[in-house]
Simulated scan of single mutants.
Amino acid sequence: MDTDKLPNIDHSTDWVDPDNGQFVLIDEPYGNVPDDAERTDWATRNGWQLEKASWPGMYRPYDCDLYVGIDTRSGYDLDALMVKINATPEPAVSENWTGESSSSWETFLSPMAKTKQDERRARCKGMIYPSPSKATVPYNYNPGCSRRRPVGELGIDGHVQAGRVIKAVMSSQFAPGGVYSRLNSLRSDLEDWLSLEIGRGQLEGPEFFEVYYTRTDEDQARQRALTSANDLVATLRDLTRMLKSAYPDCAPLRQQLRRIEMSVSIIEKVR
């Protein structure tokens, strides 16, 4: 473990003041996640100054907090920098976006493109734009994006239940090592699906991470209820039925179901 690392650091970026070459650390963890006392101790121990900005930040503004850190031995005026940062205009978010977006991916044509042949030449050859199908949608509509997820929604409560099952099985004494890696990949993808299914403000910061990663009292109770390998198999079968009822048959769903089925197979072999 790296004991010199800033505790609870997340979404950090490195900056350099062009006027004097001063290194500035920007850290943007989710709100209410960092242990401020632990971070203060770290700053004191390492000779750093760490300040929290009132400006909403760059990474998920209003969900994350922005911290600025410098090495105090440099003599750099952090207070002056904080004044500039806090005076920065509020960042644009989806709710107040005033631009114009289009999913049609129209090709830009120069005014010099006078003929149909000019227009054909202007179009990029081999460029593939993702589009939805009856059963799947792309993660985003950027050219070249190949990741897809099923249409439909498991719902927040469904994801909470799925996360509870996955965390309980992963932590169970009856789960062989190969189960952990497969369910870890499963929950990573399901968390991605969750983030794309919910609207802004429905789950934020710690509540979002709690679904698939943070162990709660309910998670621990669910784990204690799994008293045998048979219990693990049964609860994973329930998870399969849950996913099948929420999403249509498609390649992204089948990939997740294979991870569950392989986990079941490993448990049954060891059992």
Results as ranks from 00 to 15, higher is better:
residue 103 S to Q: 09
residue 104 S to K: 11
residue 104 S to M: 11
residue 105 W to C: 05
residue 106 E to T: 03
residue 107 T to K: 09
residue 107 T to Q: 11
residue 107 T to W: 08
residue 107 T to N: 09
residue 108 F to V: 10
residue 108 F to Q: 07
residue 108 F to D: 06
residue 108 F to I: 11
residue 109 L to W: 13
residue 109 L to T: 13
residue 110 S to Y: 09
residue 110 S to N: 11
residue 110 S to D: 15
residue 110 S to P: 07
residue 110 S to H: 12
residue 110 S to C: 13
residue 111 P to L: 11
residue 111 P to K: 03
residue 111 P to I: 08
residue 112 M to H: 07
residue 113 A to V: 14
residue 113 A to F: 12
residue 113 A to N: 10
residue 114 K to G: 14
residue 115 T to N: 10
residue 115 T to V: 13
residue 117 Q to K: 14
residue 118 D to G: 08
residue 118 D to T: 11
residue 119 E to D: 11
residue 119 E to L: 11
residue 121 R to Y: 15
residue 122 A to Q: 14
residue 122 A to C: 13
residue 122 A to F: 15
residue 122 A to N: 09
residue 122 A to I: 14
residue 123 R to K: 14
residue 123 R to V: 13
residue 124 C to R: 13
residue 124 C to M: 13
residue 124 C to Q: 14
residue 124 C to F: 10
residue 125 K to I: 12
residue 125 K to W: 11
residue 126 G to Q: 01
residue 127 M to D: 01
residue 127 M to F: 01
residue 127 M to G: 00
residue 128 I to W: 02
residue 128 I to L: 09
residue 129 Y to E: 00
residue 129 Y to M: 01
residue 129 Y to D: 00
residue 130 P to C: 03
residue 131 S to V: 12
residue 131 S to H: 07
residue 131 S to G: 00
residue 131 S to K: 03
residue 132 P to F: 00
residue 132 P to R: 02
residue 133 S to M: 08
residue 134 K to C: 00
residue 134 K to W: 01
residue 134 K to I: 06
residue 135 A to F: 04
residue 136 T to L: 06
residue 136 T to Y: 05
residue 137 V to M: 07
residue 137 V to Q: 05
residue 138 P to R: 04
residue 138 P to G: 07
residue 138 P to C: 07
residue 138 P to Q: 03
residue 139 Y to I: 15
residue 139 Y to E: 05
residue 140 N to F: 07
residue 141 Y to N: 03
residue 141 Y to R: 02
residue 141 Y to E: 04
residue 141 Y to T: 04
residue 142 N to L: 12
residue 142 N to D: 13
residue 142 N to S: 12
residue 143 P to Y: 02
residue 143 P to F: 04
residue 143 P to S: 02
residue 144 G to N: 01
residue 144 G to V: 08
residue 145 C to M: 13
residue 145 C to D: 12
residue 145 C to K: 10
residue 146 S to K: 09
residue 146 S to F: 06
residue 146 S to H: 07
residue 146 S to M: 08
residue 147 R to G: 13
residue 147 R to F: 14
residue 148 R to M: 06
residue 148 R to V: 13
residue 148 R to A: 13
residue 149 R to A: 08
residue 149 R to P: 05
residue 150 P to T: 05
residue 151 V to A: 00
residue 151 V to I: 07
residue 152 G to V: 04
residue 153 E to R: 04
residue 153 E to V: 07
residue 153 E to M: 08
residue 154 L to A: 02
residue 154 L to N: 00
residue 154 L to C: 05
residue 154 L to D: 00
residue 156 I to L: 10
residue 156 I to Q: 01
residue 157 D to C: 07
residue 159 H to N: 07
residue 159 H to A: 02
residue 159 H to E: 03
residue 160 V to S: 06
residue 161 Q to T: 12
residue 162 A to K: 00
residue 162 A to C: 07
residue 162 A to Q: 01
residue 163 G to Q: 02
residue 163 G to A: 06
residue 163 G to C: 06
residue 163 G to P: 01
residue 164 R to G: 02
residue 164 R to L: 07
residue 165 V to I: 14
residue 165 V to S: 06
residue 165 V to H: 03
residue 165 V to Q: 04
residue 166 I to T: 05
residue 167 K to V: 07
residue 168 A to Q: 09
residue 168 A to L: 04
residue 168 A to W: 01
